[in-house]
C-alpha cells in the first residue's frame, strides 16, 4: 500500500450522484439546506432540474421522498445523520420502512468526526435506530472508492437503504480500478489466525494499522471490512469466530446498537467466542479537533490493539 490520498466519503457520495446522473435518469436528489455540506450540491450543479431542496424540514423531506418513490422515482434524501436517523426516525420508519419504499437516505456527518460542531451534530446512534427498522439496508462505506460503488449499487437495489457517510477526509485504500461492491458481503482485507478485527467506516483503515502493530508483536490478526451493517454477513463473521476464536469490532458509533451489537448478536446465537468493542462508550460527543476527539473517545489503532489483546486473553 502506498501513501493513500484522503477523500471524505460524503465527497465521494456527491461526486457519485453527479457521475451516475446520466446513466440512471430516474433518480432525483433531495436535501434539507445542507447541499454544500452533504455534497449533493455537486449533483445539483449538474442536474438542477432533478434536485429539490426541502428547506430545513427533514421530516417532510423523508415523507416527500416516500411519495416520490411510490410514484416510481428513486429519491436520494440527504441531510446529516443526526437529522435523518435522529429527527426523522419516525418518518423513515413509517413513510419509508413500513411500506418498504425505494428511498435512499444519504446521511452524512455521522459519528464524532464531525469535529468542532460537537455533540448535537455528532450522531453516534444512527446505526442503532436504522437497524431496528425491519427491511432497512444499511451501508457504511470505508473509503471513497467503496462509497462511489455503494451509491451505484443502491440505485440498482429496490428497497430502502440508509447510507452513512463521514465528514472527515480519510485514506483511500481500495483500488478504484479493481474494486467490486458486493451487496451484503463483508470484505476480508487481511488473513489472520489469532484474532479478527471487524471494522466499518473510518475504523477500517485504523484496523489495518492495528494489524501491523499486532504483527510486530507476533499476533496474527484477520481484518474484515463490513460495509453492509444490515443485513449482516453472518458467514464471514462466523468463519472468523471459528477460525480465530476472538474478535474486536470497531466502529465510529455508540457501542450500543451498532455493528458491535450486530456481531455480538450473531456470535452468541451461533458461535460464542470472546469479543471486545471499540466505539463511543455510551456517552455523547463533544467539540474538538478530529484527531483529539478520536484520541479522547479511543477510536484509535492503539485501542484496537489493546482490545484485540484483551479478546485473545479471554480465549479458553
Amino acid at each position: 500500500m502506498t501513501m493513500a490520498e484522503k477523500i471524505a466519503t460524503r465527497e465521494a457520495y456527491g461526486n457519485a450522484l453527479a457521475e451516475f446522473g446520466e446513466k440512471y435518469p430516474n433518480f432525483v436528489v433531495l436535501d434539507a439546506d445542507l447541499a454544500a455540506a452533504t455534497k449533493t450540491g455537486v449533483f445539483k450543479k449538474k442536474f438542477p432540474e432533478r434536485f429539490f431542496d426541502c428547506g430545513i424540514a427533514e421530516g417532510n423531506m423523508m415523507s416527500v421522498a416516500a411519495g416520490l418513490a411510490a410514484a416510481g422515482k428513486i429519491p436520494f434524501a440527504s441531510t446529516f445523520a443526526m437529522f435523518a436517523a435522529g429527527r426523522a426516525f419516525e418518518q423513515i420508519r413509517n413513510s419509508i420502512g413500513y411500506p418498504h419504499l425505494n428511498v435512499k437516505i444519504g446521511a452524512t456527518h455521522a459519528g464524532i468526526t464531525v469535529g468542532e460542531d460537537g455533540a448535537t451534530h455528532q450522531c453516534n446512534e444512527d446505526l442503532a435506530t436504522m437497524r431496528s427498522i425491519p427491511g432497512m439496508t444499511i451501508i457504511n462505506p470505508a473509503d471513497a472508492v467503496e462509497a462511489r460503488a455503494a451509491v451505484e449499487a443502491a440505485i440498482n437495489y429496490v428497497g430502502p437503504v440508509y447510507m452513512r457517510f463521514g465528514r472527515l477526509a480519510i485514506p483511500v485504500f481500495n483500488d478504484a480500478a479493481t474494486y467490486k461492491f458486493e451487496w451484503g458481503k463483508g470484505v476480508q482485507l487481511a488473513e489472520g489466525k489469532d484474532v479478527t478485527i471487524i471494522a466499518t467506516g473510518v475504523m477500517v483503515d485504523m484496523a489495518l494499522s492495528a494489524r501491523a502493530t499486532l504483527a510486530a508483536e507476533g499476533i496474527d490478526a484477520r481484518v474484515i471490512n463490513i460495509h453492509t451493517i444490515k443485513p449482516l454477513d453472518r458467514e464471514i463473521v462466523l468463519a472468523a469466530a471459528r477460525e480465530t476464536g476472538a474478535l474486536v469490532v470497531a466502529e465510529e458509533h455508540n457501542i450500543i446498537g451498532g455493528l458491535g451489537s450486530a456481531v455480538a448478536e450473531c456470535l452468541c446465537e451461533a458461535c460464542p467466542v470472546p469479543m471486545m468493542r471499540v466505539g463511543v462508550e455510551d456517552t455523547f460527543g463533544r467539540s474538538g479537533k478530529v484527531p483529539a476527539l478520536l484520541e479522547y473517545y479511543g477510536l484509535t489503532p492503539a485501542n484496537i490493539v489493546a482490545k484485540a489483546k484483551a479478546a485473545i486473553a479471554l480465549k479458553k
Binding site: 432525483v28 432540474e49 432533478r50 429539490f52 421530516g59 417532510n60 423523508m62 415523507s63 416527500v64 421522498a65 416516500a66 411519495g67 416520490l68 418513490a69 411510490a70 410514484a71 416510481g72 422515482k73 429519491p75 418518518q91 413509517n94 413513510s95
Partner: peptide, 16 residues
C-alpha cells in the same frame, strides 16, 4: 406524514 407523501407524488408527476 401523508400530506408530505402526497407532495412527493405530485412532484413526481411534474418531474415526469
Amino acid at each position: 406524514l401523508g400530506i408530505s407523501a402526497a407532495c412527493g407524488m405530485a412532484l413526481a408527476a411534474k418531474i415526469d
